[in-house]
Design a protein around this nucleic acid. Structure first.
Length: 470
RNA sequence: GGCGGCAUAGCCAAGUGGUAAGGCAGAGGACUGCAAAUCCUUUAUCCCCAGUUCGAAUCUGGGUGCCGCCUCCA
């Protein structure tokens, strides 16, 4: 059993076989850093983070590259509006990107290259394309000649004529063909520019991904991912540029995530119907957002709503409760040799197999959730039905969660110990003393005070547990 | 016009031939000083029609509805 991925190039699921055994070169299109990213943008960050983690979990060494587009029309417009340089704008929103992505539990990429730091590579790639007759200069601009690349449209499954028929682009530019796209743009007044063989200018949007992907991952990548709206033209153009230059296949597996909808409509900056990840994080716990994103298959559209986030949050609470009950049992409940260790270990080993099976099938995270909650049920029942617990059983359960969570990233961070924790323990002791004396007024007062601080108490036959509200 | 996706219980959502995972919400019960948590029980003729098959949510054809790409967009 091994990983199968849906490849948009062939529109079928294919067994995943990397170019180099044991290693995966994975490029994911990153944000244009002109603003906070919105919750729809967050979807690919989260789902491909999970794919990357799953590959690592499966034993691959993954080189994961995600770029920042830091020079582009919208960057220039916003920087001008704010009276700052494009560089300052980029620095600011790169920092903001990390804040939000970190909060959402997205692992840092191996490399986060910037377009502006790869001008040499970009210029060289454009030069090569001109030399090979796939690109032409026109008044300081350089365009890719789509007619020169016979496979153009292979990813979109459309011919050049079909693509053009629906085209809504104006033909006023210096292009030979309406679908020709800019590799290099001549500098305009007040724009950042770099020196090139075609005069001062800046790169087109698509070329940076090709140049940087090749620099960090070589001429052929294992996986390239992005939102499905990037399929055309961005990824189509990346293929054209790169393959025209190298004569080699650019990417083995193209994968695209479905949209995040809001009110059944695509969330996008241009439609104005977006909620920034920053704003969403103020409203909902980060792990609930992550949970929501992973509760459906990555290729399906998902509808963002307050209700679906509440549902995700409630489900996450169930997982949290189980986890904290388990940890509490390991630390504080009665243990003994009960002979149930083997049985529970076997059941968790079986669940781990199921987890691998569903994830191997095009990383079906929604299926994986089912497996996780099967584990939750087993643990809850075991803890409920037994006075004396078997340490081997508890450890196998803990191990199961830790392993799976290395992929899913849904469990809360470790409690930090420290003064606050000691104070809480003291208050709990005081409250239990009050309860013993049937002084429920005082007892409830302490519980209410702690609740106001986000600390939830639960009385169990083995003592009082506490947890922080998510 | 071309290309593509989706339609499973009140809600979210897995499931590509053998009579439907999981989560949320609801109802009843157990436990509890009260809570909370947990456990048990309970809720689906899988959009419609026709076909293939011993057998279809799953395959084929035809509908209906919703969404998207072909322009910057994750």
């Amino acid at each position: 059993m091994s990983l199968v991925l849906y490849n948009d190039l062939t529109r079928t699921k294919e067994p995943f076989v990397p170019l180099r055994e044991g290693h995966v070169g994975f490029y994911s299109c990153g944000p244009t850093v002109y603003d906070y990213f919105h919750i729809g943008n967050a979807r690919p960050f989260i789902v491909f983070d999970v794919l990357r983690r799953y590959l690592e979990f499966s034993g691959y060494r993954v080189t994961f590259v995600q770029n920042f587009t830091d020079i582009e029309d919208k960057m220039i417009a916003r920087a001008n509006r704010e009276g700052i340089t494009v560089r300052q704008l980029a620095d600011r929103f790169i920092a903001e990107y990390y804040k939000d992505a970190d909060a959402l539990g997205v692992k840092r990429a191996t490399h986060n290259p910037l377009a502006t730091e790869h001008m040499d590579e970009i210029i060289e790639l454009v030069s090569t394309l001109i030399k090979k007759g796939h690109a032409y200069e026109s008044e300081g601009d350089v365009y890719f000649d789509v007619k020169s690349f016979s496979k153009y449209g292979a990813l979109s499954k459309q011919t050049i004529d079909e693509l053009q028929a629906g085209a809504r682009i104006d033909v006023t530019e210096n292009k030979r063909h309406p679908l020709d796209f800019a590799l290099w743009k001549a500098a305009k007044e007040g724009e950042p520019h770099w020196t090139s063989p075609w005069g001062e200018g800046r790169p087109g949007w698509h070329i940076e991904c090709s140049a940087m992907a090749m620099k960090y991952l070589g001429e052929t990548l294992d996986i390239h991912s992005g939102g499905t709206d990037l399929t055309f033209p961005h990824h189509e153009n990346e293929i054209a540029q790169t393959e025209a230059a190298t004569g080699k296949p650019f990417v083995k597996y193209w994968i695209h995530n479905g949209y995040l909808l809001i009110d059944k409509e695509k969330m996008s900056k241009s439609l104005g119907n977006f909620l920034t990840a920053r704003a969403a994080l103020e409203q909902f716990p980060a792990r609930a957002i992550r949970f929501f994103m992973l509760s459906a298959h990555y290729r399906s559209p998902i509808n963002f709503s307050e209700d679906s986030l509440h549902q995700a949050r409630a489900a996450m609470d169930r997982l949290d409760n189980c986890w904290s009950d388990l940890r509490y049992a390991i630390d504080s409940r009665k243990k003994g040799e009960t002979g149930e260790g083997k049985e529970l270990s076997a059941r968790f080993a079986d669940l781990e197999k199921k987890f691998r099976a569903v994830m191997d099938d095009d990383f079906n995270t929604a299926g994986a959730m089912g497996v996780i909650f099967d584990g939750v049920k087993i643990i809850n029942t075991y803890l409920k039905e037994n006075e004396i617990l078997d340490m081997e059983a508890l450890r196998s359960a803990e191990n199961f969660f830790v392993k799976i969570d290395s992929v899913m990233g849904l469990l809360p961070a470790e409690a930090d110990g420290g003064d606050e924790e000691q104070e809480i323990e003291k208050l709990i002791a005081e409250r239990n003393e009050a309860r013993k004396n049937r002084d429920f007024g005082r007892s409830d007062e302490i519980r209410d005070d702690l609740a106001a601080r986000g600390i939830i108490l639960e009385d169990t036959p083995d003592g009082t547990k506490w947890k922080k509200k998510a």
